[in-house]
Design a protein around this nucleic acid. Structure first.
Ligand SMILES: [Mn+2]
Ligand SMILES: [Mn+2]
Ligand SMILES: [Zn+2]
Ligand SMILES: [Zn+2]
Lengths: 155, 155
DNA sequence: GTCGCGATTGAGAATCAGTCTCAACCGCCT
DNA sequence: AGGCGGTTGAGACTGATTCTCAATCGCGAC
């Protein structure tokens, strides 16, 4: 079903739907979450679909251009960058734990509204946005407060 | 003045304030906007401050870790990534024109509030965020609407 | 269904931003 | 002034991504 969107884009740009492109995008949709190129390559290989590295990169590039995929910074300093599927053009935002790397994807209308408002104030016509919130997840908060407790005792 | 913040961080981590580190950070503050490594290297070289590539990267890494700098995605597909100074720990968000690349930096309390709210809903303790809004600037909107006008006539 | 052409692919070479190595050097404390 | 790390520069190195090009494939035309 999102495959259709992909086929549509390919056709619009006079590109062909090949076996490899279909399999790559299918696998991306299955991943449902952030992923990196090696994971994608490996999972395809597991299924006997040994698609070349070059084709993987070429297809990811296409998907990025068509907005069916985006790169996401999953650390505040931008060290780590992963891919993130946006089926139906729905690009979600992320809440990322800076300690354990856990990522929660969300879609908040309020974020889009705020972006539209800010863009409007500058006369810009908004098309999309990307928001990452860096924070400590509940588990890591507990772990941290324990450690701090110990340090307290030492001091 | 923001140099002081840097010195403070260095001292706290038992690191030394060297000539090179001072010059690199000074230049970054002068840049005031997004920049890439080559630009920084080149501008330092112009001033006779030929600091090695390795030292530049090492210093950028430090600044990223201390939050005095961040990497910013300046295209919706994440193809382009630049550095962005955050003196005083004030990390601004960006409004980026997808056509001409113009970037407007802004600080909106409403964005921080919304992030805090969203994090809270998931039990996360927020520390920072990065928001980029992709849009068409006024000039590029005009250019686009002209082109569309022509296409209309054809259809 | 077959043909033909332009798009696509795979294997490996090439690129190139960023990292690492290590000997010389410097900042800082005594 | 002396000495102990931390820091630097030059260049080797790395690894992710891109490029090259001959072999293949998709798909519209016949
Ligand atoms: Mn989505
Ligand atoms: Mn700022
Ligand atoms: Zn966590
Ligand atoms: Zn513009």
């Amino acid at each position: 079903m999102s495959q259709q969107l992909f086929e549509q884009f390919l056709e619009q740009h006079c590109l062909k739907m090949t076996q490899q492109r279909r399999e790559i995008y299918e696998e991306i949709l299955k991943l449902e979450d952030h992923f990196d190129v090696d994971t994608l390559l490996w999972r395809l290989k597991q299924q006997g679909k040994a698609i070349s590295k070059a084709t993987i990169y070429r297809t990811l590039q296409l998907l990025l251009e068509y907005g069916l995929l985006k790169k996401t910074q999953v650390s505040p300093d931008g060290a780590e960058i992963l891919y993130d599927a946006c089926p139906e053009g729905c690009a979600s935002d992320n809440l990322v734990c800076t300690e354990c790397g856990k990522v929660i994807r969300f879609n908040k209308a309020a974020v889009c509204q705020l972006c539209t408002e800010i863009a409007g104030q500058h006369g810009f016509a908004p098309s999309s946005h990307c928001l990452n919130i860096f924070a400590l997840c509940p588990a890591c908060q507990q772990a941290t407060s324990k450690t701090q407790g110990e340090q307290h005792e030492k001091a």
